[in-house]
């Protein structure tokens, strides 16, 4: 264990107001801390710069999954296990269940949170591609009030986000798919479980009259942050399922990615395999 414990401090506010107050008073000093499944790994390795933490785990305001007619709203402290076990999520957002199921293993799923997965901002995170595919919106809270931001505009670059020093992610809101929809999620990890994604792709489509009326594709591990595959989407939207331009979409996908070589996979592998996974998704879609 290489973190230096005596330097560390952690505060445990008992209300959201108290937490926001501390964040606002000392901007940039306190690092929000939820399930610890990312921060503690870096701390244990002695590579965590932050030493002061704000424990959110007692903030009931950030918990729970609320359903209304048109959407599901996830408190940012919703764990992967809670996602896996929620009937409404299974019904409306099957990709999100699959993403949660392949995040680490059970001990991680019991502790890790959806909000943490978002703000840790790893390009390889497992739930963001699904959130992108479902057109998620984030509700951010600060002493200045609430603001909403579309999730596909939240990540600004590698570990850079549209999130002020005094803001917390309060809720993640997913609009329920309407009409006839298609869902696809695939993670290509370093192994079958307890794995980090080398490539992941989530897609959600609305099908009308045998055509692709709408399509959202989220990609992981192929750019500095989770990204929408807007070029590939554009190549496909409006096309008939019976004649999807698979080759054109694969080609367009190259414009959506900027993969790098790292210790888990080469840029070339990431790029080819993401194209192949898109092809696999489109074959599934054609048969839907």
């Amino acid at each position: 264990m290489r973190g230096y414990l005596p330097d560390c401090d952690i505060r445990v506010p008992d209300s959201l107001a108290a937490a926001l107050d501390l964040l606002a008073r000392e901007p940039g000093v306190w690092t929000p801390f939820a399930g610890g499944t990312d921060l503690m790994v870096v701390y244990n390795a002695g590579r965590l710069k932050a030493t002061r933490f704000l424990d959110l785990s007692r903030l009931s305001e950030l918990r729970g999954i609320q359903e209304d007619e048109t959407s599901l709203a996830f408190g940012s402290l919703t764990t992967y296990t809670e996602i896996r076990e929620c009937r409404a999520v299974h019904q409306h957002f099957p990709n999100l269940v699959k993403s949660a199921r392949v995040t680490g293993a059970l001990a991680i799923q019991n502790r890790g949170t959806l909000g943490g997965n978002i703000v840790n901002a790893s390009p390889a995170a497992d739930t963001p591609p699904s959130l992108l595919a479902y057109g998620a919106e984030l509700e951010l809270v600060s002493p200045r009030g609430l603001r909403r931001v579309a999730y596909d505009r939240f990540h600004l670059g590698y570990k850079r986000m549209d999130l002020a020093a005094d803001e917390l992610v309060a809720r993640i809101i997913l609009p329920k798919p309407t009409g006839r929809s298609f869902h696809y999620f695939r993670k290509v990890g370093t192994r079958q479980a307890q794995a980090i994604a080398k490539v992941s792709l989530a897609a959600h489509a609305r099908i009308e009259d045998g055509h692709l009326a709408a399509l959202w594709i989220g990609l992981g591990s192929v750019a500095p942050a989770p990204v929408r595959a807007r070029n590939a989407e554009a190549a496909l939207i409006g096309k008939p399922l019976a004649a999807l331009p698979i080759e054109a979409a694969r080609e367009a996908l190259l414009g959506d990615m900027s993969p790098i070589d790292d210790i888990r996979a080469s840029a070339h592998y990431r790029s080819v395999v993401t194209q192949n996974v898109l092809g696999h998704m489109l074959r599934d879609l054609a048969g839907a």
Binding site: T190, R191, Q192, I196
Partner: peptide, 15 residues
């Protein structure tokens, strides 16, 4: 340089 269990891939029960 992949000297963590996360990055040196031994089989899990699922593999």
């Amino acid at each position: 340089i992949n000297n963590q269990m996360t990055n040196y891939i031994i089989p899990t029960s699922a593999d």
